[in-house]
Design a protein around this nucleic acid. Structure first.
Length: 245
DNA sequence: TGAAACGATCACATTCCTGT
DNA sequence: ACAGGAATGTGATCGTTTCA
């Protein structure tokens, strides 16, 4: 068993079980890829791939179990390389942060600015993605840090720490009936069409949960990724906006 | 049904490691 | 430094599958 075999297993799955594509992605030959898979299967004594004739259709049960371990081993191998780099070049290198549009636009600018002042030689890469994609990028070692409001904490193979908390606010035109109230309840809000974030983004699940807990049906007329976009449509009178402060 | 795509296998070449 | 062997990779080719 060697790392090349493990890389081939991972790449074959990523390339939808096409060995030709997997070999191209790894800059090696199709015959070599085929041989490595067979060698590993022979060594382990189990079939890792479901075959129909000469086609690979998917992973067998042991193959699926193995894939999780392979992913972790390859990420750890990359981490070992980075660890060495970190010690060799304390304040150099690249830091890749996977984050959502909202975090990148409203939260990270001050953090990034402070970071660049402290570590001017570090090249920062901001990768915008959905929370689910961020989790995938972290698991595949494509990002060093992920920042998002959803999904990450529920992923078993990722360690998450609270960064900050924010509150949800409603936004309405000045002449809207809700604007005249001194206290606004969920029931008051649910009486109007709602505009808020896309599912899976920016605390949307918390918003849904709050209305669900209150047994209130919501007329969600629009969703968007960006608070500015939500504000624009609130100004047009499309609905009441729920955004982060 | 035939062409194209694909995986498996074989023979051979190259690289690397080990013992002398 | 050198020889021998193991490991690894490649190209050619064949058989199978897919699809128009």
């Amino acid at each position: 068993m060697n790392f090349q075999q493990l890389r081939i297993i991972r790449e074959t799955v990523r390339q939808n079980y096409n060995l030709t594509d997997a070999s191209a992605a790894l800059f090696t030959s199709q015959s070599g890829v085929s041989k490595h898979i067979k060698d590993l299967e022979d060594e382990l004594g189990v079939q890792l791939f479901i075959r129909k004739g000469k086609r690979l259709l998917g992973l067998t049960e042991p193959g699926q179990s193995l894939l999780g371990i392979v992913e972790r081993m390859l990420v750890d191998a990359d981490n070992i390389k980075r660890l060495a780099d970190d010690f060799n070049k304390v304040d150099e290198g690249t830091l890749t942060i996977a984050t959502t549009h909202t975090q990148a636009r409203y939260v990270l600018p001050t953090v990034v600015s402070a970071f660049k002042q402290r570590f001017p030689k570090v090249h920062l890469v901001l990768q915008q993605a959905s929370p689910i994609e961020i989790a995938e990028m972290l698991l595949h070692g494509e990002a060093d840090i992920g920042i998002a409001t959803e999904s990450l904490a529920s992923e078993d193979n990722l360690a998450s720490v609270p960064f900050y908390q924010w509150q949800h606010s409603i936004i309405t035109p000045l002449n809207h009936p809700l604007a005249a109230l001194t206290e606004v309840t969920l029931k008051d809000i649910a009486a109007y069409p709602i505009i808020t974030y896309h599912g899976g983004f920016t605390g949307r699940s918390k918003i849904d949960q709050a209305f669900e807990d209150a047994a209130l049906d919501v007329d969600l007329v629009m969703s968007a990724l960006d608070a500015d976009v939500i504000k624009t449509y609130v100004e047009l009178g499309i609905g009441v906006g729920i955004v982060n402060e």
